[in-house]
Write a protein that binds this DNA or RNA. Structure first.
Lengths: 213, 213
DNA sequence: TTTGCACTTTACCGACCGGTCAACTAATCT
DNA sequence: AGATTAGTTGACCGGTCGGTAAAGTGCAAA
Protein backbone atom coordinates (compact mmCIF):
# COMPACT_ATOMS: atom_id res chain seq x y z
CA UNK A 1 0.00 0.00 0.00
CA UNK A 2 1.62 3.15 1.19
CA UNK A 3 4.68 1.35 2.43
CA UNK A 4 6.44 1.18 -0.89
CA UNK A 5 10.09 0.38 -0.55
CA UNK A 6 11.09 -0.61 -4.12
CA UNK A 7 14.72 -1.03 -3.20
CA UNK A 8 14.69 2.75 -3.46
CA UNK A 9 17.31 3.18 -0.79
CA UNK A 10 19.62 0.61 0.62
CA UNK A 11 19.93 1.07 4.32
CA UNK A 12 17.20 3.65 4.51
CA UNK A 13 15.92 2.13 7.73
CA UNK A 14 19.38 2.14 9.17
CA UNK A 15 19.79 5.80 8.35
CA UNK A 16 16.37 6.63 9.75
CA UNK A 17 17.29 4.89 12.99
CA UNK A 18 20.57 6.77 13.26
CA UNK A 19 18.83 10.08 12.60
CA UNK A 20 16.05 9.36 15.11
CA UNK A 21 18.56 8.27 17.72
CA UNK A 22 20.50 11.46 17.16
CA UNK A 23 17.48 13.74 17.48
CA UNK A 24 16.20 12.05 20.60
CA UNK A 25 19.43 11.24 22.43
CA UNK A 26 21.03 14.62 21.85
CA UNK A 27 18.09 16.51 23.30
CA UNK A 28 17.28 14.19 26.19
CA UNK A 29 19.39 11.51 27.83
CA UNK A 30 20.43 7.93 27.22
CA UNK A 31 18.25 6.32 29.85
CA UNK A 32 15.18 8.47 29.24
CA UNK A 33 14.92 7.53 25.57
CA UNK A 34 13.75 3.98 24.88
CA UNK A 35 14.29 1.97 21.75
CA UNK A 36 10.52 1.90 21.23
CA UNK A 37 10.51 5.67 20.97
CA UNK A 38 13.49 5.66 18.64
CA UNK A 39 11.78 3.15 16.37
CA UNK A 40 8.52 5.06 16.38
CA UNK A 41 10.33 8.28 15.55
CA UNK A 42 12.19 6.55 12.73
CA UNK A 43 9.12 4.80 11.34
CA UNK A 44 10.79 1.44 11.72
CA UNK A 45 9.72 -1.69 13.58
CA UNK A 46 11.72 -2.76 16.58
CA UNK A 47 12.89 -5.99 14.99
CA UNK A 48 14.58 -4.04 12.22
CA UNK A 49 16.64 -2.13 14.74
CA UNK A 50 18.05 -5.40 16.00
CA UNK A 51 18.79 -6.44 12.44
CA UNK A 52 21.12 -3.47 11.95
CA UNK A 53 22.48 -3.06 15.47
CA UNK A 54 23.23 -5.49 18.28
CA UNK A 55 21.39 -3.25 20.72
CA UNK A 56 20.78 0.20 22.08
CA UNK A 57 24.40 0.74 23.04
CA UNK A 58 25.75 -0.08 19.58
CA UNK A 59 23.14 2.14 17.96
CA UNK A 60 24.19 4.97 20.23
CA UNK A 61 27.86 4.48 19.44
CA UNK A 62 27.16 4.48 15.68
CA UNK A 63 25.10 7.62 16.12
CA UNK A 64 27.97 9.29 17.97
CA UNK A 65 30.36 8.32 15.20
CA UNK A 66 28.23 10.03 12.58
CA UNK A 67 27.58 12.98 14.86
CA UNK A 68 31.28 13.55 15.40
CA UNK A 69 31.94 13.33 11.67
CA UNK A 70 29.39 16.07 11.06
CA UNK A 71 30.75 18.16 13.91
CA UNK A 72 34.26 17.89 12.53
CA UNK A 73 33.17 18.76 9.02
CA UNK A 74 30.83 21.62 9.96
CA UNK A 75 32.53 23.21 12.96
CA UNK A 76 36.03 22.03 13.77
CA UNK A 77 37.58 22.16 10.31
CA UNK A 78 35.96 25.36 8.97
CA UNK A 79 36.26 27.13 12.31
CA UNK A 80 39.75 26.20 13.43
CA UNK A 81 41.63 25.74 10.19
CA UNK A 82 42.83 28.75 8.25
CA UNK A 83 45.07 31.69 8.47
CA UNK A 84 43.31 34.03 10.88
CA UNK A 85 44.53 34.95 14.31
CA UNK A 86 43.96 32.50 17.14
CA UNK A 87 41.71 34.99 18.90
CA UNK A 88 39.47 35.16 15.84
CA UNK A 89 39.36 31.41 15.51
CA UNK A 90 38.36 31.01 19.12
CA UNK A 91 35.64 33.60 18.72
CA UNK A 92 34.41 31.94 15.54
CA UNK A 93 34.36 28.64 17.37
CA UNK A 94 32.31 30.05 20.24
CA UNK A 95 29.90 31.63 17.80
CA UNK A 96 29.49 28.35 15.94
CA UNK A 97 28.68 26.52 19.17
CA UNK A 98 26.29 29.28 20.17
CA UNK A 99 24.57 29.09 16.80
CA UNK A 100 24.17 25.33 17.08
CA UNK A 101 22.74 25.45 20.61
CA UNK A 102 20.43 28.33 19.73
CA UNK A 103 19.10 26.55 16.67
CA UNK A 104 18.53 23.37 18.65
CA UNK A 105 16.63 25.32 21.25
CA UNK A 106 14.51 26.98 18.59
CA UNK A 107 13.83 23.73 16.77
CA UNK A 108 13.31 21.36 19.69
CA UNK A 109 12.62 23.63 22.64
CA UNK A 110 15.67 22.32 24.46
CA UNK A 111 19.27 23.47 24.70
CA UNK A 112 21.19 20.20 24.52
CA UNK A 113 24.69 21.14 25.59
CA UNK A 114 27.55 18.95 24.37
CA UNK A 115 26.24 15.53 23.27
CA UNK A 116 29.56 13.89 24.03
CA UNK A 117 29.97 15.53 27.40
CA UNK A 118 26.37 14.74 28.29
CA UNK A 119 26.82 11.03 27.68
CA UNK A 120 30.20 11.04 29.39
CA UNK A 121 28.51 12.46 32.47
CA UNK A 122 25.50 10.14 32.36
CA UNK A 123 27.31 6.90 31.57
CA UNK A 124 30.95 7.62 32.37
CA UNK A 125 30.93 6.14 35.82
CA UNK A 126 29.05 2.92 35.15
CA UNK A 127 29.41 1.93 31.51
CA UNK A 128 33.05 1.45 30.55
CA UNK A 129 32.33 0.60 26.92
CA UNK A 130 30.38 3.77 26.24
CA UNK A 131 32.86 5.75 28.29
CA UNK A 132 35.76 4.70 26.09
CA UNK A 133 33.81 5.38 22.88
CA UNK A 134 32.97 8.88 24.07
CA UNK A 135 36.50 9.50 25.28
CA UNK A 136 37.78 8.76 21.76
CA UNK A 137 35.66 11.56 20.34
CA UNK A 138 36.72 13.98 23.06
CA UNK A 139 40.34 13.17 22.25
CA UNK A 140 39.67 13.87 18.59
CA UNK A 141 38.26 17.28 19.46
CA UNK A 142 41.29 17.98 21.64
CA UNK A 143 43.56 17.13 18.72
CA UNK A 144 41.89 19.83 16.63
CA UNK A 145 42.32 22.35 19.43
CA UNK A 146 45.98 21.44 19.77
CA UNK A 147 46.52 21.83 16.03
CA UNK A 148 45.07 25.34 16.17
CA UNK A 149 47.32 26.16 19.11
CA UNK A 150 50.38 24.72 17.37
CA UNK A 151 49.65 26.93 14.39
CA UNK A 152 49.45 29.92 16.71
CA UNK A 153 52.81 29.02 18.21
CA UNK A 154 54.29 28.67 14.73
CA UNK A 155 52.93 32.09 13.81
CA UNK A 156 54.36 33.69 16.90
CA UNK A 157 50.97 34.39 18.46
CA UNK A 158 51.84 32.23 21.45
CA UNK A 159 55.26 31.84 23.07
CA UNK A 160 57.24 28.82 21.87
CA UNK A 161 57.30 27.51 25.41
CA UNK A 162 53.52 26.99 25.28
CA UNK A 163 52.44 23.48 26.27
CA UNK A 164 49.84 23.09 23.55
CA UNK A 165 48.81 19.65 24.81
CA UNK A 166 47.92 21.02 28.20
CA UNK A 167 46.30 24.14 26.73
CA UNK A 168 44.15 22.12 24.34
CA UNK A 169 42.94 19.98 27.21
CA UNK A 170 42.10 23.11 29.20
CA UNK A 171 40.27 24.51 26.19
CA UNK A 172 38.07 21.42 26.01
CA UNK A 173 37.44 21.42 29.74
CA UNK A 174 36.35 25.03 29.78
CA UNK A 175 34.19 24.51 26.70
CA UNK A 176 32.49 21.54 28.35
CA UNK A 177 31.95 23.54 31.50
CA UNK A 178 30.45 26.43 29.56
CA UNK A 179 28.01 24.03 27.93
CA UNK A 180 27.11 22.51 31.29
CA UNK A 181 26.25 25.97 32.58
CA UNK A 182 24.32 26.86 29.44
CA UNK A 183 22.34 23.66 29.80
CA UNK A 184 21.68 24.36 33.48
CA UNK A 185 20.42 27.80 32.44
CA UNK A 186 18.73 26.57 29.26
CA UNK A 187 19.96 29.83 27.82
CA UNK A 188 22.36 30.18 24.88
CA UNK A 189 23.39 33.63 26.07
CA UNK A 190 25.42 31.86 28.75
CA UNK A 191 27.72 30.64 25.99
CA UNK A 192 28.38 34.17 24.78
CA UNK A 193 28.75 35.47 28.32
CA UNK A 194 31.33 32.83 29.27
CA UNK A 195 32.97 32.59 25.86
CA UNK A 196 35.59 35.32 26.54
CA UNK A 197 36.96 33.15 29.33
CA UNK A 198 38.40 30.94 26.58
CA UNK A 199 40.45 33.87 25.33
CA UNK A 200 41.53 34.76 28.83
CA UNK A 201 42.64 31.18 29.44
CA UNK A 202 44.43 30.58 26.16
CA UNK A 203 45.78 33.94 25.05
CA UNK A 204 47.13 35.41 28.26
CA UNK A 205 50.70 34.96 29.39
CA UNK A 206 50.52 31.88 31.60
CA UNK A 207 53.95 31.78 33.17
CA UNK A 208 53.40 28.82 35.43
CA UNK A 209 51.24 26.09 34.01
CA UNK A 210 53.40 23.47 35.56
CA UNK A 211 52.82 19.78 35.06
CA UNK A 212 53.04 17.44 38.00
CA UNK A 213 56.30 15.52 37.68
CA UNK B 1 10.74 -10.23 66.01
CA UNK B 2 14.01 -8.89 64.73
CA UNK B 3 12.38 -5.76 63.47
CA UNK B 4 12.56 -3.83 66.70
CA UNK B 5 12.05 -0.13 66.27
CA UNK B 6 11.30 1.08 69.80
CA UNK B 7 10.86 4.69 68.82
CA UNK B 8 14.65 4.70 68.88
CA UNK B 9 14.96 7.37 66.24
CA UNK B 10 12.37 9.72 64.87
CA UNK B 11 12.70 9.96 61.16
CA UNK B 12 15.32 7.23 60.94
CA UNK B 13 13.70 5.87 57.81
CA UNK B 14 13.66 9.31 56.27
CA UNK B 15 17.38 9.74 56.96
CA UNK B 16 18.13 6.26 55.62
CA UNK B 17 16.29 7.09 52.42
CA UNK B 18 18.17 10.35 51.99
CA UNK B 19 21.48 8.62 52.59
CA UNK B 20 20.70 5.78 50.20
CA UNK B 21 19.51 8.22 47.55
CA UNK B 22 22.74 10.17 47.93
CA UNK B 23 25.01 7.15 47.63
CA UNK B 24 23.20 5.78 44.61
CA UNK B 25 22.33 8.95 42.72
CA UNK B 26 25.74 10.58 43.14
CA UNK B 27 27.59 7.60 41.72
CA UNK B 28 25.17 6.69 38.94
CA UNK B 29 22.43 8.75 37.32
CA UNK B 30 18.87 9.80 38.03
CA UNK B 31 17.16 7.55 35.51
CA UNK B 32 19.32 4.51 36.13
CA UNK B 33 18.51 4.35 39.84
CA UNK B 34 15.00 3.19 40.68
CA UNK B 35 13.11 3.82 43.86
CA UNK B 36 13.02 0.08 44.50
CA UNK B 37 16.81 0.07 44.61
CA UNK B 38 16.87 3.12 46.85
CA UNK B 39 14.43 1.49 49.27
CA UNK B 40 16.34 -1.78 49.27
CA UNK B 41 19.60 0.05 49.96
CA UNK B 42 17.94 1.99 52.78
CA UNK B 43 16.24 -1.05 54.31
CA UNK B 44 12.86 0.63 54.01
CA UNK B 45 9.68 -0.47 52.25
CA UNK B 46 8.50 1.46 49.23
CA UNK B 47 5.34 2.69 50.91
CA UNK B 48 7.39 4.44 53.56
CA UNK B 49 9.22 6.41 50.91
CA UNK B 50 5.91 7.79 49.74
CA UNK B 51 4.99 8.62 53.30
CA UNK B 52 7.96 10.98 53.62
CA UNK B 53 8.27 12.21 50.06
CA UNK B 54 5.74 12.88 47.30
CA UNK B 55 7.90 10.96 44.86
CA UNK B 56 11.31 10.31 43.39
CA UNK B 57 11.83 13.91 42.31
CA UNK B 58 11.10 15.36 45.75
CA UNK B 59 13.37 12.79 47.39
CA UNK B 60 16.14 13.77 44.98
CA UNK B 61 15.66 17.47 45.70
CA UNK B 62 15.77 16.88 49.46
CA UNK B 63 18.91 14.81 48.98
CA UNK B 64 20.51 17.62 47.00
CA UNK B 65 19.63 20.09 49.72
CA UNK B 66 21.42 18.03 52.35
CA UNK B 67 24.30 17.33 49.99
CA UNK B 68 24.84 21.00 49.32
CA UNK B 69 24.74 21.78 53.04
CA UNK B 70 27.52 19.24 53.65
CA UNK B 71 29.50 20.54 50.68
CA UNK B 72 29.25 24.08 51.95
CA UNK B 73 30.25 23.09 55.48
CA UNK B 74 33.08 20.73 54.50
CA UNK B 75 34.57 22.34 51.40
CA UNK B 76 33.36 25.81 50.55
CA UNK B 77 33.60 27.45 53.94
CA UNK B 78 36.84 25.88 55.21
CA UNK B 79 38.51 26.09 51.80
CA UNK B 80 37.52 29.56 50.63
CA UNK B 81 37.16 31.51 53.83
CA UNK B 82 40.22 32.76 55.63
CA UNK B 83 43.17 35.03 55.28
CA UNK B 84 45.42 33.22 52.85
CA UNK B 85 46.23 34.31 49.35
CA UNK B 86 43.69 33.66 46.62
CA UNK B 87 46.12 31.35 44.85
CA UNK B 88 46.41 29.22 47.97
CA UNK B 89 42.65 29.12 48.41
CA UNK B 90 42.15 28.00 44.84
CA UNK B 91 44.75 25.29 45.26
CA UNK B 92 43.19 24.16 48.52
CA UNK B 93 39.83 24.06 46.81
CA UNK B 94 41.16 21.93 43.95
CA UNK B 95 42.82 19.60 46.42
CA UNK B 96 39.59 19.23 48.38
CA UNK B 97 37.67 18.33 45.23
CA UNK B 98 40.40 15.91 44.24
CA UNK B 99 40.32 14.30 47.66
CA UNK B 100 36.56 13.87 47.50
CA UNK B 101 36.58 12.34 44.03
CA UNK B 102 39.50 10.07 44.89
CA UNK B 103 37.80 8.84 48.03
CA UNK B 104 34.57 8.18 46.18
CA UNK B 105 36.44 6.21 43.56
CA UNK B 106 38.19 4.18 46.25
CA UNK B 107 35.00 3.56 48.18
CA UNK B 108 32.55 2.94 45.35
CA UNK B 109 34.73 2.17 42.35
CA UNK B 110 33.34 5.16 40.48
CA UNK B 111 34.49 8.76 40.11
CA UNK B 112 31.21 10.67 40.32
CA UNK B 113 32.12 14.13 39.12
CA UNK B 114 29.96 17.03 40.31
CA UNK B 115 26.59 15.75 41.56
CA UNK B 116 24.91 19.05 40.75
CA UNK B 117 26.43 19.36 37.30
CA UNK B 118 25.64 15.73 36.56
CA UNK B 119 21.95 16.18 37.27
CA UNK B 120 21.90 19.52 35.46
CA UNK B 121 23.22 17.75 32.39
CA UNK B 122 20.92 14.74 32.67
CA UNK B 123 17.70 16.56 33.49
CA UNK B 124 18.40 20.18 32.57
CA UNK B 125 16.79 20.05 29.16
CA UNK B 126 13.59 18.19 29.99
CA UNK B 127 12.72 18.67 33.67
CA UNK B 128 12.27 22.33 34.53
CA UNK B 129 11.52 21.72 38.20
CA UNK B 130 14.71 19.80 38.83
CA UNK B 131 16.63 22.21 36.65
CA UNK B 132 15.63 25.16 38.80
CA UNK B 133 16.42 23.32 42.03
CA UNK B 134 19.89 22.44 40.76
CA UNK B 135 20.46 25.93 39.43
CA UNK B 136 19.82 27.31 42.92
CA UNK B 137 22.68 25.25 44.33
CA UNK B 138 25.02 26.22 41.50
CA UNK B 139 24.21 29.86 42.22
CA UNK B 140 25.02 29.30 45.88
CA UNK B 141 28.42 27.88 44.95
CA UNK B 142 29.05 30.84 42.66
CA UNK B 143 28.28 33.20 45.53
CA UNK B 144 31.06 31.59 47.60
CA UNK B 145 33.48 31.94 44.69
CA UNK B 146 32.54 35.58 44.28
CA UNK B 147 33.05 36.23 47.98
CA UNK B 148 36.56 34.79 47.77
CA UNK B 149 37.28 36.95 44.73
CA UNK B 150 35.88 40.06 46.43
CA UNK B 151 38.19 39.42 49.37
CA UNK B 152 41.12 39.16 46.97
CA UNK B 153 40.16 42.47 45.39
CA UNK B 154 39.91 44.04 48.82
CA UNK B 155 43.37 42.73 49.69
CA UNK B 156 44.86 44.06 46.50
CA UNK B 157 45.52 40.63 45.02
CA UNK B 158 43.26 41.40 42.08
CA UNK B 159 42.81 44.78 40.37
CA UNK B 160 39.83 46.79 41.62
CA UNK B 161 38.40 46.73 38.11
CA UNK B 162 37.89 42.97 38.37
CA UNK B 163 34.37 41.85 37.52
CA UNK B 164 34.07 39.33 40.32
CA UNK B 165 30.58 38.27 39.21
CA UNK B 166 31.86 37.27 35.80
CA UNK B 167 35.02 35.72 37.23
CA UNK B 168 33.07 33.63 39.73
CA UNK B 169 30.85 32.33 36.97
CA UNK B 170 33.93 31.41 34.92
CA UNK B 171 35.43 29.70 37.93
CA UNK B 172 32.37 27.51 38.28
CA UNK B 173 32.23 26.76 34.56
CA UNK B 174 35.86 25.67 34.45
CA UNK B 175 35.44 23.59 37.61
CA UNK B 176 32.42 21.84 36.11
CA UNK B 177 34.33 21.22 32.91
CA UNK B 178 37.29 19.79 34.80
CA UNK B 179 34.94 17.39 36.57
CA UNK B 180 33.32 16.38 33.30
CA UNK B 181 36.73 15.49 31.94
CA UNK B 182 37.72 13.67 35.10
CA UNK B 183 34.53 11.66 34.91
CA UNK B 184 35.11 10.89 31.23
CA UNK B 185 38.57 9.65 32.21
CA UNK B 186 37.45 8.08 35.46
CA UNK B 187 40.76 9.35 36.77
CA UNK B 188 41.17 11.83 39.63
CA UNK B 189 44.59 12.85 38.29
CA UNK B 190 42.73 14.77 35.62
CA UNK B 191 41.60 17.16 38.34
CA UNK B 192 45.16 17.86 39.42
CA UNK B 193 46.36 18.12 35.83
CA UNK B 194 43.68 20.67 34.88
CA UNK B 195 43.54 22.43 38.22
CA UNK B 196 46.24 25.01 37.39
CA UNK B 197 43.97 26.30 34.63
CA UNK B 198 41.87 27.83 37.39
CA UNK B 199 44.80 29.93 38.51
CA UNK B 200 45.59 30.89 34.92
CA UNK B 201 42.00 31.97 34.39
CA UNK B 202 41.49 33.86 37.64
CA UNK B 203 44.89 35.24 38.61
CA UNK B 204 46.29 36.49 35.33
CA UNK B 205 45.83 40.03 34.08
CA UNK B 206 42.69 39.80 31.96
CA UNK B 207 42.57 43.17 30.25
CA UNK B 208 39.55 42.56 28.08
CA UNK B 209 36.89 40.41 29.67
CA UNK B 210 34.25 42.51 28.05
CA UNK B 211 30.57 41.93 28.60
CA UNK B 212 28.27 42.06 25.64
CA UNK B 213 26.43 45.40 25.77
C1' DT C 1 12.82 -21.29 -11.74
C1' DT C 2 14.76 -22.12 -7.74
C1' DT C 3 17.52 -20.79 -3.97
C1' DG C 4 19.51 -17.63 -0.81
C1' DC C 5 19.78 -13.50 1.49
C1' DA C 6 18.71 -8.92 3.23
C1' DC C 7 15.23 -6.98 5.36
C1' DT C 8 10.60 -6.47 7.65
C1' DT C 9 6.86 -7.60 10.62
C1' DT C 10 4.46 -9.06 14.65
C1' DA C 11 3.88 -11.27 18.73
C1' DC C 12 6.01 -12.10 22.80
C1' DC C 13 9.32 -12.35 26.97
C1' DG C 14 10.54 -11.51 31.98
C1' DA C 15 11.95 -7.70 34.49
C1' DC C 16 11.40 -3.45 36.08
C1' DC C 17 9.35 1.31 36.25
C1' DG C 18 7.11 5.04 39.47
C1' DG C 19 3.24 5.15 42.07
C1' DT C 20 -1.20 3.69 44.80
C1' DC C 21 -3.75 1.69 48.33
C1' DA C 22 -5.88 -0.23 52.39
C1' DA C 23 -4.80 -2.53 56.36
C1' DC C 24 -1.96 -2.63 60.26
C1' DT C 25 1.10 -1.23 64.46
C1' DA C 26 2.56 1.55 67.98
C1' DA C 27 3.23 5.35 70.25
C1' DT C 28 0.85 10.07 71.80
C1' DC C 29 -2.68 13.10 73.35
C1' DT C 30 -7.23 14.07 75.71
C1' DA D 1 -9.82 4.14 78.15
C1' DG D 2 -10.55 6.04 73.76
C1' DA D 3 -9.34 8.64 69.90
C1' DT D 4 -5.75 10.43 67.03
C1' DT D 5 -1.75 10.25 64.61
C1' DA D 6 2.76 8.96 62.49
C1' DG D 7 4.80 5.42 60.56
C1' DT D 8 5.05 0.70 58.34
C1' DT D 9 3.90 -3.03 55.42
C1' DG D 10 3.11 -5.85 51.29
C1' DA D 11 0.19 -6.54 47.63
C1' DC D 12 -1.02 -4.48 43.52
C1' DC D 13 -1.53 -1.17 39.31
C1' DG D 14 -0.82 -0.15 34.23
C1' DG D 15 2.87 0.82 31.58
C1' DT D 16 7.48 0.53 29.73
C1' DC D 17 12.10 -1.42 29.57
C1' DG D 18 15.69 -3.82 26.33
C1' DG D 19 15.70 -7.77 23.89
C1' DT D 20 14.15 -12.31 21.37
C1' DA D 21 12.13 -15.37 18.02
C1' DA D 22 9.87 -16.91 14.13
C1' DA D 23 7.44 -16.22 10.18
C1' DG D 24 7.15 -13.68 6.12
C1' DT D 25 8.50 -10.37 2.20
C1' DG D 26 10.67 -9.17 -2.16
C1' DC D 27 14.69 -8.86 -4.79
C1' DA D 28 18.88 -10.80 -7.07
C1' DA D 29 22.07 -14.03 -8.34
C1' DA D 30 22.66 -18.88 -10.00
Amino acid sequence: MDTAHPSSERGASRQALLQAARELLVTRSYASVGIAEICEHAGVRKGSLYHFFPGKEALTQAMLEALYADFERDVLIPGLTGTGKLRDRIEAFVRAIHAFESRMQTDTGRLPGCPFGNLAVELGSHNPGMRRAIRRHLDAVTAHFRAALDTAVRDGELPPSTDTDAAAEQWLALMEGILVMAKADQDPDTILRLGPALGALLLNPTPEVRHEP
